Simulated scan of single mutants.
Amino acid sequence: MASFAHDFPFDPAYGRTLDDLLRISAPDDAPDDFDAFWRARYEEARGVATEPELGPLEEERDGVRIHGVTFTSVGGVRLGGWVALPAEGAEAEYGFVIGHGYGGRQEPGPDVPLPLPRSAAILPCVRGMGARGLRTGIPDVSAAHVLHGIASRDTYVIGDCVADLWCAASALHELVPETARTQDGPRLGLLGESFGGGLGALALPWDDRFGAAQLTVPTFGNHPLRLTLPCIGSGESVRTYRRTHPEVTEVLPYFDAATAASRTKRPTLVAAALFDPSVPPPGQFAVYNALAGERELQVLDAGHFEHPGTAAAAEELRAARTRFFGAHLGR
Rank of each mutant, 00 (worst) to 15 (best):
R132A: 10
E306M: 10
D256P: 08
R127L: 09
F195D: 00
H67S: 07
P230S: 11
L79S: 03
G293W: 04
L188N: 06
I150R: 03
G200W: 00
Y254P: 12
A312R: 12
A212W: 07
S25E: 09
E294D: 14
Y156C: 10
T259R: 02
T228G: 11
V287H: 06
L79W: 05
G133A: 08
Y102V: 08
G283R: 03
A213I: 09
A40F: 01
L18H: 04
L123C: 05
R181T: 15
R226H: 12
R78S: 12
A258Q: 05
A168F: 06
F220Q: 06
F324P: 08
F285I: 13
T17I: 11
E247S: 10
R323F: 10
T264F: 03
E58P: 02
D28Q: 11
G235A: 12
G211E: 08
E174F: 05
R318F: 03
L329N: 03
Q298R: 13
G149N: 01
P246F: 08
E296D: 11
A30D: 07
V279A: 09
S234F: 07
E236Q: 14
T268D: 02
V162Y: 01
S152T: 10
V251T: 14
S142H: 07
P177S: 09
H6V: 14
G68S: 13
D7N: 14
D29A: 15
L134Q: 04
P205Q: 01
G185N: 04
L215S: 08
P113R: 04
G95P: 02
P52D: 02
I24L: 14
E178D: 08
R41S: 13
A13R: 01
A26H: 02
D11V: 14
D207N: 12
Y94H: 02
G128E: 04
A36W: 00
G80K: 02
D208R: 13
N289S: 09
R46F: 06
V112A: 00
G293S: 08
S142P: 04
L274I: 15
M1F: 10
P218E: 10
